[in-house]
Design a binder for these strands. Structure first.
Lengths: 352, 352
DNA sequence: CCGTGACATGGTATCGTTACCCTTGTAAAG
DNA sequence: CTTTACAAGGGTAACGATACCATGTCACGG
């Protein structure tokens, strides 16, 4: 850089090479627009409370200076961060990813940003995330499921902000819980399989550790068997992580223990698709020799041969509803019940 | 609440029902621990710069008061937010989700939080996201691909923070670009198919709008044909969104235009799996009648019948490498080249 | 002609933390 | 025993925005 290039600058003016200042504040905008800083703040927060002419001058000054507001300062003063924390077990599962996207699509236009964390299905990790995120003073928190450590609940109670638990309906929400009942859905599918005449039904479920959704699904299955007077046997159950790879392996395990099974209910479409592909590989006729049912209605499920009978869960609706409810709460608008059940749909296709 | 319950409280003390104050500050902690506020700050930021005894007293005071630091204040004063912004086209595609998780797994233990946005494959939306997120004064920004609006680039340049573009290597990074070459990979797959003797190769690609990854893949395919002296014909190409549903439909289109095709290269495993399932439904033998190759090596690909020949992309490694690089930059440690190519692997399986 | 009130705008203090710089105490060196 | 060096800790100001309250202006009715 030549010395001539900086000849007209005072030493203090930390101007960039392109002439714009690297730390333009509201004060600078106000000065250029010939108004007070507070008016700039108002023009940005409540445009209708300043005259069109003032707004125009301010907008011009902002553009000329390349002003970018500093939300850290605003958050500190107003104690409103416009951050919503969302914690999911994993982002890789497209179910959660779609719910998060739906939430984001509603929250962003309203000026809120989602701070996302994933726990890897660990309540202890969830606690650590909540503790760390609360330091950002979020305006609201969204958790997955209703299984949390006592300290997690305590931290959230003390934060005195809206907390919405999602996906799985439970009896005693921290604040509000929005989703559907995994138990009801699983029970419905089990009844359906029994009604269809399957006599020896195996179950491939998810891991139960810190996961009330998989636990409810398994409980719903057992309840369905028991109300039909079918003996329950632990041998009928295999548990595996939700990966395509484990569906096939789990089917192998199940058939070793229960060679006479005529139906399999998998607690996730990821597992169910793995099962279908394994059947294809082994030459097991579906549903002739073995019926297969899933849970989630993933994108691929309807394209399988045979198409998969499954439970459709309102994943986008859950995200949207949660976000709208959160916005209503934060705006002080009245909200309804503390427990919102968005239901499910049993999709009957050819596989079972 | 009974009046007896609050008898010992001063009017100003906004104590909660459980006795803890809803806005405990560092000053309160300092007072209880019998030290200055600055010492509390040091104990939290640089634990090795205070004695073990002081640290213990402070830790006890923090626990007793239920103190939660206020990062907004810290950010304002230190102009370090410990926020990293990451922008992806979509979170539903598990490719991006896994990269984000890998980044998060490295960043979180270092005290950084990921602020995630999704653009829906729109450069204009990306610009809006960047503008909005910069108000949070992130310490770094991670973008997908190298196709951005001029204003996006300008905003990021002015922010004077590390910017890492990811996934697709391009010639002129804003700052640093880490990923692999979609062009090279696509070219390699096309050469492979030609070498295997396929004569009429169709291509099912993604939409090109604001997406340099799909563009490079298509360009690599064309280059592969041309270097082998094969005539390129626009009829050989079908474009569809990356959904399982569209793979099958796209195959139908392609076979209408190109009934003599003996191989299909799909620019994403999601599409390729859709193609395989469609073949299964239509009774098209793979690879006998039609070979199928994909791109991404999704979890399901190896479980298909036949297993899918594809390009394995280092999705977790990309996330990890980006996060490590970002941390190194922010710590002032030296970093290497501005363009980091993590390569790819052609996985030969039975489908092509 | 003046009081009244609605509206637009401004001055000043403040949010909770950390940077900067200083004081104190103690141990090592001479 | 004094000097030097360094570690531990503290006082004060400042980061950039908004809340609170005050002021000025103008239209309108009595």
């Amino acid at each position: 850089m030549t010395s001539a290039g900086s000849r007209s600058r005072t030493p203090q003016a930390n101007a960039d090479a392109d002439g714009t200042n690297s730390s333009v504040t509201m004060r600078d905008v106000a000065r250029l627009a010939g108004v007070g800083t507070i008016t700039v703040s108002r023009a940005l927060q409540h445009p209708d409370r300043v005259t069109a002419e003032t707004r125009r001058k301010i907008d011009e000054a902002i553009a000329a200076l390349g002003y970018v507001p500093n939300l850290a300062a605003g958050t500190l003063r107003s104690s409103k961060s416009r951050i919503i924390v969302a914690i999911v077990p994993t982002m890789s599962n497209s179910i959660f990813a779609e719910t998060l996207q739906a939430m984001s699509d509603v929250l962003r236009p309203a000026g809120f940003h989602l701070l996302i964390g994933h726990t890897g299905y660990s309540a202890a990790e969830e606690e650590a995330l909540v503790a760390a995120f609360l330091a950002r003073r979020p305006d609201g928190v969204i958790l997955t499921g209703y299984t949390h450590t006592p300290r997690t609940v305590e931290l959230l109670r003390r934060a005195r902000i809206p907390v919405i638990e999602m996906w799985n309906i439970g009896p005693d929400p921290i604040d509000t819980i929005i989703g559907m009942s995994s138990y009801d859905a699983s029970l419905a599918m089990t009844r359906y399989l029994i009604r269809k005449g399957y006599r020896r039904i195996g179950y491939i479920g998810g891991l139960l550790q810190d996961n009330d959704r998989t636990a409810q699904r398994e409980a719903g299955f057992r309840a369905g068997l028991e109300e039909a007077g079918r003996p329950f046997d632990p041998l009928m159950i295999v548990r595996a992580p939700f990966e395509f790879e484990s569906g096939g392996t789990a089917l192998g395990d199940l058939l070793n223990r229960m060679p006479d099974a005529d139906a399999v209910f998998a607690a996730s479409d990821i597992l169910a698709v793995g099962v279908l592909l394994e059947c294809l590989g082994r030459g097991i006729a579906v549903p002739g020799r073995l019926a297969v049912a899933g849970f989630d209605d993933a994108g691929i499920s309807s394209r399988m041969t045979p198409p998969l009978t499954t439970i459709r869960v309102p994943r986008r609706a859950i995200g949207r509803t949660i976000a709208e409810r959160m916005l209503a709460r934060l705006a002080g608008r009245p909200t309804g019940e503390r427990i919102v059940d968005l239901g499910f749909e049993l999709i009957e296709r050819a596989s079972a």
